[in-house]
Design a binder for these strands. Structure first.
Ligand SMILES: [Mn+2]
Ligand SMILES: [Mn+2]
Length: 654
DNA sequence: GAGTGCT
DNA sequence: AGCACTCAACGCGTA
DNA sequence: TACGCG
């Protein structure tokens, strides 16, 4: 009680000596019950801290039962009578409240609980006595999402960010015959701190012996431990085989003995059962998932399945549909293969997609089928897909533009057959260089033009060879071939040199189709129009020094035999195939970053959905620090304040 | 591919 | 449950 | 304003 001096003071005003049962709760800034806020108070020991917290974090003591009044033991009375006594006893105040009876219809109470975003309800037999010190049969806890305690029996190997800890924890519980039963593995719900703590706690418990009677199948490489740790796990339901569906790790339960971990009677909640969620405050994308367990869940020949990712469920269909047909030496790529690719590259691509509006190019029937572009989504979206509302001049109204900020979203893009992922050169967030720019994207074109969305992170140089192999159908774009790519590389190196003369750091990747993308990261103090003009000036200079090999011509016919320098890609509505985006060409190649030194002996078709994950595991993300290498173009305006005067920049470029 | 309305 | 049907971008340059 | 363009 010393933790709550304010409450104690008020309770001392009561005449009788009382033994009450109840619970203290604290609230967050939105008025929701917050365990974290309560914890901030319960750890304190110094009197001054306690006093300060008593002011800063108000609490309410909810009283739900009375055991003694003076010398009188009330525990034998039926609950309804104890409640009557309580009601006459307690004076409700800011700090003390009564827990009222919610009526005798459990499902009404449960619905109210859901509407108020509370954890669950407790049903009590109105005729029951108070049973001290044990879990009473006449009290029934009904939670919205199920949590239970399980034994940690081992872990599976992790991938990517989880390499140094573990992928998933292997869970078990005691069965009726004194043995241990496998109930599933949990790969989400951990933050960096929990991962570290758990790995070091588990290390000393390692054993060669698998604690289960029959070794569970479908686990990636497992390390076993003596089943001595108890974890609380949230989950959606149990499958027919009594395996946990969509489990999320919560915390260790040091107060529970390992031998007490056995199945509990289940209260079935048919309609209202929900998916377990991570706590509201931890963003889905801050916690790396166990990629190995996701990949193994995908690794079968089923046509449809439901993947549980980050505590959400994603329905996958038509997994055996061929998206990229077999072509020459390239084996066919099915939707399953494609989603497998997305999962494997997710640690590398997600940082580049983060908070960039995306343009989808969807091919529900594979690369030979009909395609359509998509940038926004009006209907119901899975809850893990983030969007940003912005005005579109095209439709003269606001729309919800799609972002891909987490693994679940990336997998979902695979499900909806988005075969190319194009990103904006702008981001919807200001860090680290655009705190001064407005973040109002809605209402009018003016708002957009003044906002972050008009200030790109990069100047992009899009180089496309217009050298035809001769095998193209009439009107088709040039196909990939050695000569065209070689010339593009040559021009790219001229360009790199020119940009280096200006002390601009450059990043290069294959577009994945026939050409190259060169990015120059810039401080966001230059709007698109000027970025475009800057790019145009560079283009003119390049064109002047290599007129036989470079073209900036707008009409396709006049580009033949040269490399097209497309400065117009630096525009608000433009997007380019993202780094690591697959491309819709027969080879299933992928936009891949290269070291400049690799350029001479690289070829776009070498980097495919099949080969790029292995390359990434070897060389990592060559563009990982692109946003920490920003160039400040304002310095070119130092002598002449109008950067937009193209003669000035062209001269400087030269 | 997803959603809707019809059979 | 199965079928038919609809819907899914955008702005800049040039004529 | 219509169309070409990526
Ligand atoms: Mn282009
Ligand atoms: Mn291109």
């Amino acid at each position: 009680t010393h933790q709550y001096p304010g409450l104690v003071k008020e309770l001392k005003t009561y005449q009788d000596n009382l033994v009450l049962d109840g619970e203290i709760v604290a609230f967050d800034d939105k008025g929701r019950i917050s365990f974290q806020q309560l914890q901030a108070r319960s750890g304190l020991t110094r009197a001054t801290d306690i006093k300060a917290a008593d002011e800063k974090i108000p609490i309410i003591y909810y009283v739900f039962d009375v055991l003694y009044q003076g010398d009188r033991d009330l525990r034998g009375l039926p609950l309804r009578e104890r409640k009557m006594i309580l009601q006459n006893l307690i004076r409700s105040s800011d700090q003390i409240r009564l827990v009222y009876n919610l009526g005798d219809d459990g499902s009404v109470a449960f619905r109210a609980c859901i509407e108020n975003d509370l954890e669950g309800i407790v049903g009590k037999d109105a005729d029951s006595a108070y049973e001290s010190g044990r879990r009473s049969r006449s009290w029934l806890k009904v939670k919205r999402t199920r949590t239970d305690e399980f034994l940690i029996c081992g872990w599976t190997e992790g991938l990517g960010a989880r390499r140094s800890s573990f992928g998933a924890l292997i869970l078990g519980e005691h069965d009726a015959h004194g043995g241990l039963r496998f109930v599933g593995s949990v790969g989400t719900g951990f933050d960096a701190k929990k991962l570290k703590l758990l790995s070091s706690t588990l290390k000393p418990l390692v054993t060669d012996h698998c604690p289960f009677k029959s070794r569970p199948s479908g686990l990636s490489r497992a390390t076993w431990v003596r089943p001595e740790l108890v974890a609380e796990i949230k989950f959606a339901e149990r499958t027919k085989d009594e395996i946990l569906r969509a489990p999320v790790y919560l915390h260790l339960r040091k107060d529970i003995e390992p031998e007490d971990v056995k199945p509990k009677p289940i209260v079935h909640i048919e309609k209202n059962s929900e998916m377990p969620k991570k706590s509201k405050r931890s963003k889905m994308d801050t916690v790396p998932d166990d990629l190995a367990s996701i990949l193994s869940a995908l690794d079968n020949d089923r046509e449809s399945l439901t993947l549980d990712v980050s505590g959400a469920s994603i329905k996958l269909t038509n997994l055996n549909k061929v998206f990229w047909p077999e072509w020459q030496r390239h084996s066919p790529t099915t939707k399953r293969d494609y989603i497998n690719y997305l999962v494997r590259i997710s640690p590398f691509i997600l940082p580049h997609l983060r908070n960039r509006m995306i343009t989808l190019i969807r091919f529900p029937n594979g690369i030979e089928g009909q395609k359509f572009y998509q940038k926004h989504w009006d209907e119901h979206l899975p809850k893990f897909v983030e969007t940003v509302r912005a005005y579109t001049e095209h439709e003269k109204k606001d729309q919800n533009f799609l972002l891909c900020n987490n693994l679940a979203s990336l997998i979902w893009l695979g499900q909806i057959a988005d075969l190319e992922l194009h990103t904006s050169h702008t981001r919807t967030t200001a860090e680290p260089d655009a705190a001064h720019l407005p973040r109002t994207f809605t209402g009018s074109l003016k708002h957009i033009e003044n906002s972050l969305l008009n200030y790109p992170d990069f100047i992009v140089f899009d180089l496309d060879p217009y050298l035809y192999s001769g095998k193209e159908a009439k009107g088709d774009e040039p196909e990939l071939h050695q000569k065209g790519f070689a010339l593009t590389c040559k021009i790219a190196l001229y360009l790199k040199e020119m940009l280096e003369q200006l002390s601009l750091k450059t990043f290069v990747k294959t577009s994945g189709k026939t050409g190259l993308h060169i990015y120059v990261p810039i401080v966001r103090n230059i709007a698109y129009e000027q970025v475009r003009q800057f790019s145009q000036s560079i283009g003119h200079a390049l064109l002047e020094s290599h007129p036989e090999q470079v073209t900036m011509d707008w009409s396709v016919a006049k580009r033949t035999g040269k490399v097209f320098f497309d400065h117009n890609m630096n525009a608000r509505s433009k997007s380019l195939a993202s780094i690591y985006s697959p491309r819709v060409i027969a080879q299933a190649s992928v936009s891949t970053p290269l070291n400049w030194s690799e350029l001479s002996d690289s070829y776009p078709a070498d980097f495919t959905i099949q080969t790029v994950p292995a390359r990434l595991n070897k060389v990592g993300d060559l563009w990982s620090d692109i946003l920490s290498n920003k160039n400040d173009l304002q310095r070119f305006a130092a002598s002449d304040p109008s950067l937009s005067k193209k003669r000035t920049t062209a001269k400087k470029a030269r």
